[in-house]
């Protein structure tokens, strides 16, 4: 069918931001291809989601089932596989998220579909899927082309998409019968755990001074902490610092950590991997200090200093202290 299918992602009763990225991307592709944009909602008690999505999508397909209440790749895959085989969409878009990563590859195998993951850009032209995606940790961009296949699936990076445009009139909501017959016993979700519970909430701070792997050694972190204190901000970090257990998970800025919206985000020794910079998009001002002029962090920084953080940070702290004292 001449459709672009978009999988709505939700968790703990809320639609996730990625869904709107997918809708916006899907709409662009649908317009180009003269296709319909169809949102797919799998869950239980999804009326609210459907109403929201109907504002943007031409059609919303809903499958309600207890097994679909929370994301679980097994029932999700079963339902989606049936839906896609029936409807033969031009393309199915899934978020490149913890859910998408768990779902898309095995779904593609089941459908014998061509799959491109982690896409920055996607095109579907005459049934041919091409995509641009990062490789080598974001330091290279790869243009990919999918071979001829019955089905095509792409997982899309969060962000990078415009806000979705609402339709003039709400799209049609179609409730479908759940094809799930017996309970699937292989994989069970037991609970969600908030790893940052009880710790400082860095996302509440107006000024965040964040440190990355460029700090080299845990004992150097105090250097950055001192600067954070001088600025009256909080200390945060990027993923490698947490992986090395130099700072607790609660301090991590990034997709898998905290998404932040401070007025100042000062990134020190952070190269700016995708999963990090996505989480600081809401910052009022981004300042980056890094020794590598090619570091991707400079692409999102309002101000940059190319230099050795061990020289710049103490000097900056001193200047700030002096400026404060001068007042």
């Amino acid at each position: 069918m001449n459709e672009i299918l978009v999988l709505a992602e939700h968790r703990r009763g809320e639609l996730r931001e990625i869904t709107f990225d997918l809708i916006a991307r899907g709409r662009q592709l649908a317009e180009k291809a003269g296709a319909e944009l169809v949102a797919v909602v799998l869950g239980r008690g999804t009326d609210g989601f459907c109403a929201t999505l109907a504002q943007y999508a031409d059609r919303v397909l809903v499958v309600e089932d207890d097994a679909l209440r929370d994301f679980n790749s097994e029932p999700y895959q079963a339902v989606l596989a049936q839906l896609i085989s029936e409807r033969q969409p031009l393309l199915t878009l899934i978020g490149h998220t913890a859910c998408g990563l768990d779902l898309a590859p095995s779904l593609a195998v089941q459908l014998d579909a061509a799959l491109v993951t982690d896409c920055l850009e996607v095109e579907i032209d005459g049934g041919k899927l091409t995509a641009v995606r990062p490789a080598y940790g974001g330091r290279v961009r790869a243009s990919l082309q999918a071979r001829e296949a019955t089905h095509r699936i792409a997982t899309i990076q969060a962000g990078n998409a415009p806000s979705p445009r609402a339709r003039d009139s709400a799209g049609e909501i179609v409730k479908l019968q759940s094809p799930l017959a017996e309970e699937m016993a292989y994989k069970k979700l037991l609970e969600y755990v908030d790893t940052a519970a009880g710790e400082i909430d860095i996302s509440q701070s107006e000024i965040i001074v964040s440190v990355g792997r460029g700090i080299g050694d845990p004992k150097n972190i105090t250097l950055v902490e001192d600067l954070a204190n001088a600025l009256g901000g909080v200390l945060a970090c990027s993923r490698p610092v947490v992986d090395k257990k130099w700072l607790p998970k609660a301090r991590q800025v990034g997709i898998s950590g905290k998404t932040v919206h401070p007025k100042l985000y000062l990134a020190i020794g952070i190269s700016g991997a995708f999963q990090h910079v996505t989480a600081i998009k809401g910052a009022g001002m981004v300042v980056a200090i890094n020794k590598d002029p090619k570091a991707p962090i400079f692409r999102v920084a309002d101000y940059g200093i190319v230099g050795d953080l061990f020289a710049v940070v103490p000097t900056l702290k001193e200047k700030i202290a002096r400026a404060k004292a001068g007042k």
Binding site: V116, V140, S143, R147, F298, D302, G304
Partner: peptide
């Protein structure tokens, strides 16, 4: 036996958003 193929690699644009001091 692949379902996708790489057409081309490129280096991402080095353009900076803001000022380098």
């Amino acid at each position: 036996g692949s379902k996708t193929e790489i057409e081309k690699l490129s280096l991402p644009p080095a353009a900076q958003k803001g000022d380098i001091l």
